[in-house]
Computed example of a mutant assay.
Amino acid sequence: MIKTVGDNNINTMTAKKFGTDSEELVLKWGQDYGLKTMLSITYFEEAGRGSVALEDMSIGDIALEIPEPLIISEDLVYNSDMFALLKI
């Protein structure tokens, strides 16, 4: 689906907004704890939210690296103190 939107709008995709305040705050928090990214969160009028490379990338480059302790999974939430608050 994403490829179809891109193929149909390859010459007309317009980045409208690069990152909202909340997205930038989450990104900054992640970077403070080791997240590495070559991407910027962007809103495209034709396709909605997506990302744009901040620099030229080659095949095999890592676009987003998330340290394991930052990954929030369903199992982790079930086994955390937050589960009682979130199940309401």
Score class of each variant (00 low, 15 high):
residue 17 K to E: 14
residue 13 M to V: 07
residue 35 L to E: 03
residue 63 A to D: 00
residue 1 M to K: 13
residue 87 K to G: 03
residue 49 R to W: 15
residue 76 L to H: 07
residue 42 T to N: 13
residue 64 L to F: 15
residue 61 D to L: 02
residue 51 S to D: 05
residue 50 G to W: 01
residue 29 W to S: 11
residue 40 S to A: 15
residue 26 V to R: 10
residue 48 G to S: 05
residue 14 T to R: 09
residue 35 L to V: 11
residue 60 G to V: 03
residue 69 P to N: 05
residue 75 D to V: 02
residue 9 N to K: 01
residue 35 L to C: 05
residue 10 I to S: 10
residue 53 A to K: 01
residue 67 P to M: 07
residue 6 G to S: 04
residue 44 F to G: 00
residue 54 L to Q: 11
residue 24 E to V: 00
residue 35 L to K: 01
residue 26 V to T: 10
residue 2 I to C: 13
residue 63 A to C: 06
residue 4 T to P: 00
residue 38 M to Y: 08
residue 47 A to Y: 11
residue 10 I to Y: 14
residue 10 I to V: 13
residue 43 Y to D: 04
residue 62 I to D: 03
residue 4 T to F: 07
residue 80 S to N: 03
residue 88 I to T: 12
residue 43 Y to H: 12
residue 21 D to P: 04
residue 46 E to I: 00
residue 2 I to E: 11
residue 39 L to M: 12
residue 70 L to G: 03
residue 59 I to S: 02
residue 78 Y to W: 07
residue 79 N to C: 08
residue 13 M to K: 00
residue 25 L to S: 08
residue 50 G to Y: 03
residue 23 E to F: 11
residue 52 V to A: 04
residue 32 D to G: 02
residue 75 D to M: 02
residue 69 P to A: 08
residue 68 E to L: 08
residue 2 I to R: 14
residue 2 I to P: 14
residue 14 T to Y: 06
residue 14 T to S: 13
residue 46 E to F: 14
residue 46 E to G: 02
residue 40 S to V: 00
residue 54 L to F: 02
residue 28 K to E: 12
residue 2 I to S: 14
residue 18 F to M: 14
residue 42 T to C: 15
residue 45 E to R: 10
residue 75 D to I: 05
residue 17 K to P: 09
residue 70 L to Y: 07
residue 53 A to E: 01
residue 67 P to Q: 04
residue 8 N to C: 12
residue 84 A to I: 05
residue 76 L to K: 12
residue 3 K to H: 13
residue 53 A to H: 01
residue 42 T to D: 10
residue 28 K to M: 11
residue 3 K to D: 06
residue 23 E to H: 10
residue 37 T to Y: 06
residue 58 S to Y: 12
residue 84 A to N: 11
residue 31 Q to W: 07
residue 6 G to Q: 09
residue 82 M to P: 03
residue 29 W to T: 09
residue 33 Y to S: 07
residue 19 G to D: 07
residue 40 S to D: 12
residue 44 F to Q: 02
residue 14 T to L: 09
residue 44 F to E: 02
residue 26 V to D: 15
residue 72 I to Q: 05
residue 56 D to A: 06
residue 6 G to W: 06
residue 40 S to F: 08
residue 87 K to D: 10
residue 12 T to L: 02
residue 72 I to R: 07
residue 14 T to G: 03
residue 32 D to T: 01
residue 7 D to C: 00
residue 53 A to P: 02
residue 24 E to S: 11
residue 5 V to I: 14
residue 44 F to I: 09
residue 35 L to D: 02
residue 78 Y to L: 06
residue 63 A to K: 00
residue 28 K to C: 08
residue 37 T to W: 09
residue 78 Y to D: 01
residue 9 N to S: 05
residue 17 K to G: 09
residue 85 L to D: 08
residue 33 Y to K: 13
residue 74 E to H: 13
residue 87 K to A: 06
residue 32 D to P: 01
residue 7 D to W: 00
residue 4 T to W: 04
residue 39 L to E: 07
residue 60 G to R: 02
residue 47 A to W: 10
residue 66 I to L: 14
residue 68 E to T: 12
residue 84 A to R: 09
residue 12 T to V: 10
residue 11 N to P: 06
residue 27 L to S: 10
residue 68 E to K: 10
residue 67 P to E: 04
residue 69 P to Y: 11
residue 57 M to W: 03
residue 33 Y to H: 15
residue 58 S to H: 14
residue 39 L to W: 08
residue 31 Q to M: 14
residue 69 P to H: 12
residue 17 K to T: 08
residue 10 I to N: 06
residue 74 E to G: 04
residue 11 N to G: 07
